[in-house]
Simulated assay, not measured.
Amino acid sequence: MKNFPYLFLLAFLTALVPAMAQTNETGTFHGAQPTKERYHAVYQLNTGDTSVIRHALANIQNSLNDPRLKGKLDIELVVYSGAFVTYQKGKAYFEKELQNLQKQGVILAMCENTMKMRKLSRDEMYPFISYVPTANGELIIRQQEGWAIIRP
């Protein structure tokens, strides 16, 4: 009981600091503000679940539409494992969405290691995608370069 005033003060400050961090001078939080000239993000996709794939493509488009990042964002979509269907002709039918993202500057990268393991050829993939030796290697390099790694 002797330490009660100190404990009360500590509890009060612990509750106050996060609340203060979420507001600006007007008292409302408006999200992080862009302070850099360029931002970089890699979206990694490793499942053939079409709902997850659609969600990932929508997330990429949402990032491109964010007014804080407009004209400042580099994005790469790295596909591996079961997500190969994202880039496979005639399978999941993502061609138009992918072409639209690519027109906006998104790098569409397919893992060659996945292709070898699943005995897939480049002829089975959309002709407009790019290739990386391994998805994991690409993610490691990009992370070391400072790119945000996003897994939808």
Rank of each mutant, 00 (worst) to 15 (best):
M1Y: 06
F4R: 15
Y6V: 11
L7G: 06
F8H: 07
L9H: 09
L13S: 05
T14S: 14
A15V: 10
A15R: 14
V17A: 03
M20N: 08
A21M: 12
Q22M: 14
P34C: 03
T35C: 07
R38A: 12
V42P: 00
L45F: 04
N46S: 11
T47S: 02
T47D: 01
T47C: 10
G48H: 01
G48C: 00
G48W: 04
I53E: 03
A56R: 02
A58Q: 14
P67D: 07
R68D: 15
R68W: 12
K70T: 08
I75Q: 05
Y80F: 05
Y87V: 13
Y87A: 15
Q88K: 10
Q88E: 11
K89L: 11
K91V: 15
A92Q: 03
E95Q: 11
K96Y: 12
E97H: 12
L98M: 04
Q99N: 04
N100R: 14
L101W: 04
Q104H: 09
G105A: 01
I107G: 15
M110V: 13
M110I: 08
E112H: 09
M115G: 00
S121V: 04
E124Q: 13
Y126R: 08
L139M: 04
G146P: 03
W147H: 05
A148Y: 03
R151M: 13
R151I: 12
